[in-house]
Design a protein around this nucleic acid. Structure first.
Lengths: 156, 156
DNA sequence: CTATTAAAAGACAAAAAGGTCTTTTAATTA
DNA sequence: TAATTAAAAGACCTTTTTGTCTTTTAATAG
């Protein structure tokens, strides 16, 4: 689904947020170890995110990464757009440059709802919601249990 | 969403099928031109698909690509698995090696339905259904209009 | 102020994806 | 059979992604 860079960024930021909530500012070595990601690469990725203003860092003893407490929740969407761009959120499954209701590719009417669901997910889920309370991880009450046209075949 | 290779394969096979239905066996140059893909690269991709048994080819004058008429419909799923593997169909959005109901990542319960919908789509849509009659391209009667939890924000 | 700690910066490299080109092989037609 | 046509094969290249490592900068503690 996402690029490795996006995955590491997601896991890293969620871990940082969780630790921050416990009053701890984790350093790079700890973060990379805990999220099972390559250390130097993770450092480079977090560095970029700091430069882009997604989080703050402190050098030296007692240093590490964290979010300012005044920071508003960060939607996954913002992170994804910053790390890998919008192809996954707006691109055509067939690879057409123009694909919409007026010029639909053969998959459009079945793929667009899936892409919309993904857009909705990344717009509403935030690093904070994923880090805190595990709310997003809890199975929602099954009102809208399945999506797609063949609900029976779905696996979890 | 998919790799370029998968996109070219999808577009190429759909075009071949459409032309076959008209009694025509298109050659590589025509295919690449019509689907707006790089010629030599498309050739390499179709070559692999021929070797894997997805379609047939003939050399020399009047040559080109086609499906045997006895061939059963080809689900997109088979093509995707052959060209880029199963990451997009089974991978965890967070990048965890193990992610299921028993060990869910923070996104699991919201992402799994989306992935299921994608699996359903690629299992039921075939090259033939996309090529013929444009059936798949027609907007379905809106019984299950939106998926995801915030239907309002959906765009098409 | 010095030693230590930890991030910043950036060079470098490996792997994968994407793409080009030439030569060879096989089929058809004149 | 010779000329032509078109795919097969595979070498080669470019770009992007992923990853490693060294050096520099900044902060803190003693």
């Amino acid at each position: 689904m996402f690029h490795k860079e996006t995955e590491y960024a997601l896991r890293g930021l969620v871990y940082i947020q969780q630790q921050n909530e416990l009053g701890h500012r984790p350093g790079l070595a700890e973060i990379a170890r805990e999220i099972d990601a390559p250390g130097f690469y993770t450092g480079k990725i977090l560095q970029r995110l700091v430069r882009q203003g997604f989080l703050t860092s402190r050098k030296g003893k007692g240093g590490g990464f964290g979010f300012g407490r005044d920071k508003p929740p960060l939607p996954l969407r913002d992170l994804i757009l910053a790390t890998e761009g919008n192809k996954i959120l707006t691109g055509c499954a067939f690879g057409l440059k123009e694909c919409d209701q007026d010029h639909p590719c053969p998959l459009h009417y079945r793929y667009a709802p899936i892409r919309n669901a993904l857009n909705d997910l990344v717009a509403t889920a935030t690093i904070q919601s994923l880090a805190g309370s595990l709310a997003a991880s809890v199975p929602p009450a099954r009102e809208k249990p399945d999506i797609g046209s063949n609900p029976d075949k779905n696996i979890n």
